[in-house]
Write a protein that binds this DNA or RNA. Sequence first.
RNA 1: GAGCUUGUAGCUCAGUUGGUUAGAGCGCUUCGUUGACAUCGAAGAGGUCAGAGGUUCGAGUCCUCUCAAGCUCACCA
Length: 745
Amino acid sequence: MNKHYQAKENEEKIYQLWQEANAFNPDSKINQNLKNDDLPSFSIIMPPPNANDPLHLGHAAFLALEDILIRHARMKGHDTLWLPGADHAGIETQFVFEKKLKKEGKSRFNFDRQTLYQMIWDYVQENSNIALEQMKKLGASADWSRYKFTLDEDITASVLETFLKMDKDQLIYRENRLVNYCPKCGTAFSNLEVDHQEQTSELYYIKYGPFTLATTRPETKFGDTGLAVHPDDKRYQQYVGQEIEVEGLNGNFKLKVIADDFVDPEFGTGVVKITPYHDFNDFAAWQRHKNELPDPIQVVDFEGRLTNAAGKYAGLKIVNARKEIVKDLEERGLLVKIDKNYRNNLAVCYRCNNAIEPLPLPQFYIKVKGMTNEVLKCLDKKEFKVYGAGYDKVLKHWLEKLEDWNISRQIVWGIRLPVWYEAKNNPMIKVTFLDQDEQRITGKLGELLQKHQLGTIKKGLQSLSAPIDAKYLIKVDSPGENYIQETDTFDTWFSSSQWPVLALQNNKEGDFARFYPTTIMETAYDILMFWVMRMLMMGLYSTQQLPFKRVYLHGLIRDGKGQKMSKSKGNVVNPLEAGEKYGIDALRMAIVIRSSAGLDKSINEADFKAMRNLNNKLWNATRFILLQREENSTKTKKKPAKFDKKFTKKLEQIQSAVSRNLDQLQLGLAAETLHNEFWHWFCDQCIEDSKKGLISQEKIFEGLITFLKLFHPFIPFVTESIWQILYQEKLVNDPILMCSPWPRC
RNA sequence: GAGCUUGUAGCUCAGUUGGUUAGAGCGCUUCGUUGACAUCGAAGAGGUCAGAGGUUCGAGUCCUCUCAAGCUCACCA
């Protein structure tokens, strides 16, 4: 044996050994032999990484944690499956791809949707193999033969089926509401995908007839349909119910004053303009006062420009329009003052950081109340458990207040809604398409059909927008040539929320019955409500069973100072580079040791070093034990040494402590216990005692075997490398440590 | 504004259903080790476990309050 453990030399060899033995597949002979039929099956669905994402420490963390659970379960004799996959990550991926297009001087508008989809598909294919290889490098013992992608044909077919079933169950509806729209990304988002940024803005005090009112968005004033005051506000009571004349930039107009207690009399002047199509509060107020107020007016379009309703300001971008309008208001003496130090929170796109526009758009929604109630019942009955610093309470809070889920996205990269409009009967549908000469044409379907064939429009189609009263059919396949399909795609989370069900149903025969519900869902706490909550809802809905029994949430990996890793700070650790330098085992152990569910973990170079030293220590302990064995092989067998009994007892204690920790998902504690006991008890005390003959070599060897097994889930490469040496020396019987039984306690 | 979490050695963090003298890694001091490992060992310094009160035979651990930090959600135009 070498004097030092050479991680790099061994890792590839060992991974290949496992693969050749088919050791990751629960159906393989070696795993069938290991299996104990009295134990239930054990399964983890890997949170599918974004297909185009390169690996970062977050991936390394979930891979390490899940691999530990899986390897432990496998050795214990469970029928064990770790099912890997990849997610198409709709918006994320399309966003990355569009950035790439931009570099080539192109944009999504240069292509019809089929071509664009195909281009993204090819791009993702190129990249997804990289991620796959990287996961293997980290030692993941997932069954790659069962790998699934969210856009695999069978998966998308199942997603559509679910949608149809939900429609039948009347859980789907289409409604024209304000959505969180990002004009830059060109799509709507759910509430969960909107960030808020505190900022200083300008608060404008503007004259509205007899009133002065405060607003941060003067450019939306052309969409005003009323004014509101608080019902108890004495100052304005005489005006409630009155129509007042207002001097405007595009001529005078009339606004009705309503009373509603959403108005805060303390804020500004206590009068607020109602602009239903550009503010969520105003929209809600309009719905409460529908019979008193006229129909809403849209002033901002989906590209972030003012509409014709803005008169001479039509076509201007929001920011420019605001400047112009403020200037004109000032000239007309309608601007009372500007508060330049007004602090407020701006809703921004989580993806591109640009301002989110509340805009009216007909979208498909899922009614969530029934589903959340079912999950809440399960939570109360403790039918599943969330591991991680108080996140069970967070989950409960979310389930209680969740609003209906907008599942329509105006992007191409995803599963297209199986919604069909009859072309001739829906002349008001707005369509954008590329004609034969690649000219981008936008217009109402009714008018376009006079000049263009429907087939041409469908072929070059980019997007369509059907009015709220458009008739539609929900059907997997086209109802006929004269139908045109909705261009919206499903929110990515709609498919990933069904992942445990879909990935097992569309896999090897019998997998669903064998491995569902899964045992543990392990993922990062920051997607608890995006993903975990929705998996619980959707899993319960489509199978009447919760998709998993335990949820283990891990935290963020931070740098040595506890700071978030980010490119701009330059403190990002590339897991593969760290693995190259210190060994994958050291990387994994550094991530896991002393980590706690739900809490962030800091890691620095010193941690990697310390863990590399641990691996080397294990290697050298083995080396010494083997050397000693050789030297003493000629001597006759002595009777048990003085401390043997005590040694056995302590070893059993460690075994049961580590097993208990693993069963209770205290992985950080298990790793720490192993580290301390191995180093400071087994090496520093016992091996030293054995030199003095106080502990027999048989016992020491037994101890080594036990530690190799207990350590294996955490540091699989070094333990297996050592095992292979022992196996060649015929000192152990099982050919592969990974598929050898866990020590019994 | 609401909720959640955290506060333990110089730094980063463990500490299981409450139970001997509160631990680890890194750092620090002194010494040792040329036959497992300098990727090592031994000894040591360093903690009113954020603060106050309470429950208990016993509290780092449970309860209440205070302080500080972080995260999430909501939000007034």
